[in-house]
Simulated scan of single mutants.
Amino acid sequence: MRHKVEGETAYYHLMSRTVGGEALFGDREREVLRKMIWQIAEFSGIRVITYAIMKNHFHVMVEVPGEREVSDAEIVRRYRVLYPEPTPWQPMRAEVLESHLMDGTPQGDELRARLIHRMHDVSWMMKTLKHRFTRWFNQSRERFGTIWSERFKSVLVEGDRWALRTVAAYIDLNAVRAGLVEDPKDYRFCGYGEAMGGGRRARKGLQIVDPDMAGYRQTLYGVGSEERPEKCSFDRKTAVRVLEVEKGKLPLSVVLRCRVRYFTDGWVIGSPDFVRKQVEGGAQPGVRPRKAHLMRGADWGGLSVGTGLRKQLFR
Rank of each mutant, 00 (worst) to 15 (best):
H3D: 11
V5P: 01
Y12M: 11
T18A: 14
F25D: 01
I37K: 02
I46N: 04
R47F: 09
A52R: 01
I53G: 02
K55F: 05
V60M: 08
V70R: 08
V70Y: 10
D72I: 11
I75D: 03
R78W: 05
R80G: 07
Y83N: 14
E85S: 14
E85R: 12
V96A: 15
M102I: 15
Q107N: 06
M126S: 04
R135G: 04
N138T: 06
N138G: 03
R141Y: 11
R143S: 12
T146I: 05
T146W: 10
E150M: 04
S154E: 13
V155N: 01
V157A: 05
L164G: 03
I171H: 03
A175Q: 06
V176Q: 00
E182G: 10
D183T: 09
K185A: 15
A195C: 03
Q207C: 11
D212T: 12
T219W: 00
Y221V: 00
Y221S: 00
V223A: 00
G224Y: 08
R228D: 05
E230K: 14
K231T: 09
A239S: 07
K249D: 13
G266R: 03
V268F: 03
V279N: 06
G297D: 07
W300L: 08
G302R: 13
T307Q: 07
K311H: 13
K311Y: 07
